[in-house]
């Protein structure tokens, strides 16, 4: 019960902080597909992406996103 209350309070705090940061896009790369399925092949440094774009003559789909929420890691 204590844990449930704590989680609820934390969730409310999260909503508050999200408003403070402006709206969070609903889809910034986190996947809802089954785990293990093929997704987007992301490059994660600019240098490698640019080198590959020049090599393959493909346009660049650029995104930046934080793999944290209010400093809490492990989530997009």
């Amino acid at each position: 019960m204590k844990r449930l209350i704590l989680l609820t309070l934390s969730s409310l705090a999260l909503i508050g902080s999200s408003f403070g940061q402006g709206s969070r896009p609903t889809d910034i790369g986190a996947s809802t597909q089954p785990i293990g399925d093929a997704g987007i092949m992301w490059y994660t440094t600019w240098d490698t992406a640019l080198e590959e774009a020049k090599r393959s003559n493909r346009p660049i789909f650029f995104m930046s996103a934080a793999a944290t929420c209010s400093g809490i890691s492990g989530v997009f």
Partner: peptide, 14 residues
């Protein structure tokens, strides 16, 4: 995902 293969997709940690 299929459409993304025609691009070099880069996602940087902001």
């Amino acid at each position: 995902i299929e459409a993304s293969r025609e691009f070099v997709c880069v996602r940087l940690e902001t």
